[in-house]
């Protein structure tokens, strides 16, 4: 039975490695790249290569940077007294899009999970401690997930961070803004109740 030429099959196999791309999507994308003008695939290839070459973790916070420091760490207008500790670089962008946070970040690069072999050494905790000693922020917000791994990481970090003299807080868990009670699941509602505020 005839099949695609080996080079084409390799392209499909490479695309299939990407998250959320199944065999049919990979084939469709490969066909599109092959049939569209060469400039389309050249642009994609250059963008990927450039990214891999230029993007490095920020020396200070671990977010994506094109130089030693990311745009946030090199921005003088940011509040250096408040830090937000997150799991992944993508979490930084989520918080930035909210527009509510003007402080600095620290990206851990994951969360503690003995089941997956992730211990403190695999995370950027050492560099966080070094930063704490050098920069001495007033408050650190732990913006980690509310699942078991996120909570374990928060519980692990809290005493370390507190020993630096900083105020340590966690993100509140509760109802989505603009949503009625009927859209909240029972667990979220439980968290929202226990974290209720005085009016």
């Amino acid at each position: 039975m005839a099949d695609y030429p080996p080079a084409f099959q390799e392209l499909i196999a490479a695309l299939r490695q990407l998250p959320s791309v199944g065999p049919r999507s990979a084939e469709r994308l490969a066909l599109y790249l092959l049939e569209s003008p060469p400039v389309v695939s050249q642009r994609l290839a250059t963008a990927i290569a450039d990214c891999r070459q230029r993007i490095v973790p920020c020396e200070r916070c671990g977010f994506y940077a094109e130089g030693p420091l990311c745009t946030i760490c090199s921005d003088d207008k940011r509040d250096r007294q408040v830090w937000c500790v997150v799991e992944q670089p993508s979490d930084v962008l989520k918080l930035e899009k909210s527009g509510s946070f003007r402080g600095l970040y620290h990206v851990l690069g994951g969360r503690l999970s003995p089941l997956d072999g992730v211990g403190p050494e695999q995370l950027r905790i050492g560099s966080l401690q070094a930063r704490l000693e050098a920069e001495k922020p007033a408050e650190i917000i732990l913006a980690l997930g509310a699942d078991v791994e996120g909570e374990t990481t928060a519980l692990y970090l809290a005493p370390i961070l507190k020993s630096s003299g900083a105020r340590v807080t966690r993100l509140a868990t509760g109802l989505p803004a603009g949503g009625g009670l009927e859209f909240a699941d029972s667990v979220t509602l439980g968290y929202a109740l226990s974290g209720r505020r005085e009016l």
Partner: peptide, 22 residues
């Protein structure tokens, strides 16, 4: 997670304490 930590020898005491607390 706590059992996985114990299987790995329970070396990092602070990780264990966090898991014990949870």
């Amino acid at each position: 997670q706590r059992n996985a930590w114990l299987r790995q020898g329970g070396e990092d005491r602070r990780v264990g304490e966090s898991l014990t607390q949870l």
